[in-house]
Design a binder for these strands. Sequence first.
DNA 1: AGCTAGCAGCGAAGCGTTTCGACGGTGGCA
DNA 2: TGCCACCGTCGAAACGCTTCGCTGCTAGCT
Lengths: 343, 343
Amino acid sequence: MVTIADVARHAGVSSSTVSYVLSGKRAISEETRNRVRISVRELGYHPNAGARALAARRSHIVALMVPLRTDVYVPVMMEIAIAVTMAARQHGYDVLLITNDEGPDGVKRIAASGLADGVILMDVELDDERIPVLRAQGVQAALIGLPDDPQSLSCVDHDFIAAGALCADHLADLGHSEIAFIGYGSGVYHRHAGYAERTLTGFRDQAEQRGLRFLHRSCEGTYESTAGTLARILADRPGTTGFVVQNEGAIGPLLTLLRTSGRTVPEDVSVIALCQDQLAEQFAPRLTAVTGSAQELGRVAVDQIMRRLTAAAAGDRPVDDRVLLTPVLTVRDSTGPAPRQQS
Amino acid sequence: MVTIADVARHAGVSSSTVSYVLSGKRAISEETRNRVRISVRELGYHPNAGARALAARRSHIVALMVPLRTDVYVPVMMEIAIAVTMAARQHGYDVLLITNDEGPDGVKRIAASGLADGVILMDVELDDERIPVLRAQGVQAALIGLPDDPQSLSCVDHDFIAAGALCADHLADLGHSEIAFIGYGSGVYHRHAGYAERTLTGFRDQAEQRGLRFLHRSCEGTYESTAGTLARILADRPGTTGFVVQNEGAIGPLLTLLRTSGRTVPEDVSVIALCQDQLAEQFAPRLTAVTGSAQELGRVAVDQIMRRLTAAAAGDRPVDDRVLLTPVLTVRDSTGPAPRQQS
DNA sequence: AGCTAGCAGCGAAGCGTTTCGACGGTGGCA
DNA sequence: TGCCACCGTCGAAACGCTTCGCTGCTAGCT
């Protein structure tokens, strides 16, 4: 193992000088700086993480707490995790992966041991039980998802209310008047996942505004479940011509079922999905969809936590920081004008 | 922050005693042990990770290097990552997430800085460029995926050769004689991903053994791409009655396309998938599939690395350790006897 | 009784950094 | 010419933990 003392000896300076060259916290002459840099490279020196964390009281690690559930669409989680990791590296930080089964205690453990300087929480519920711990322990955190009371916290999320409204507007603009909203399984709503509730709220409010008749049905996302859901919808509202789907697993089955029931998309019915663009492109027809960037979510969360860390180091009081990412509607081939009234 | 000295004072012992109680490396009387444990709990003591790592020269962290590519089925990666994280926690370890875009340098950085005690590499290619670094730096590692030369390394993977053979056997047993294998995009084969090549090899060998005619076509996994692939297959071999699919994205489209072309599954054609059971269950009809547990993969990798770490601490030379997980065939509703020859 | 062995606990020396205060040397200003 | 300020560098003191060696004890032998 090569230590800072080895580098110092090799460059003919003291180890504190090496440290200052590396951190840039004090002025060092150009010449010395270069000599040190060369030595660092030649010896292949990497500062010992433990020693650094101990002395500087900063681990240069952020923890990322991921949900265990699989009712969230997994690729999105992964995309966020990777975006977080890469963004953190840009700031010289690494990412520690912890799972939500550790719960609030996990947050406490990480904070108390100084393993991480801050925590990014995914899949935050409206009244998340990890939040009190955050406040009590004074842990720097960024939340992905908007809790009920974001006071003095940093949060980032898609603007699901806007996303829901966008769906209602698009279908209303096309002349549809009977809409069905196919959502996630009922469990998601029961545990008050913000994204599900907010999308529905945004959709519902805008639908009412535009005078649409609509209904909402939850769906587990399997073929059978989708078949059942669709059958119920068509039984309750045979005149339904617009579908909003916020459930990645239900999309494929829905399209198949519509086709086999003799309904053509988009001539007879329109389908608009709330999902990643990449997924929307994979179906036939390619789906009109409302999307937000998962990567952006991760990047913003990292920015927020970095800001908090530097603020805390400077002794500033952290303030609220709430970022909502504007969703984008991409019109593809699955939505079209409402069919003329058959009478 | 509460330190070991605080605990020692509170319990009326020296800090070394506290340390020994916590680590169990020396005998401590029952009574003292209890007093210390109580103090730990009352004060909410968590050892400082940096100090611990520095003194013990062990960070109690393993790094997990995940691929950036999305041509691997993402949920499987996530499942592995989570399994690794939870298994590591069982051993008192945390998991650091690093992305493959750091490449071999990333491995070096982690090892040289002592940030992690070992590395788990995902998506290992046959001649992976990270492996030389592993050997040169003497980094403890476990590979998920089998490289060409696993000498003195620990590796775990599904037995893809057996999986491929299982597919061929199942279809042969049902009397099919013309089979098409729909694989991943050509890029996957070009970069010599072991799982793709090995599956194909296993299938091909067994198919020949059983006297099957077969062809292999790569497919990008979108609807259009699947349509093109299927059209080519049916043009080249109109008599094809069996499909093996190793491409999660192509499954949905394939089923839809078969249906719209008037072929019924499983009466006219049989489809067998190489994918997670969970996915196989989501389609209609539910798919006969060959699977291995992603969780098991993660768990075994953690076991391997823990064994290596304790062996290294004891001064033992690490030996090869190659684990291949036996795949399982689950027969569902998408495969049936080959139709009688129409003549 | 004298000796060894082992148990419980203590004290102190690191582990490799960061960072604070100090110290020559140089240049600008009066 | 004398003084002060600043620049570039150094030495040493933390940071909080692990671990080695030591010291009294008690117990078991001979």
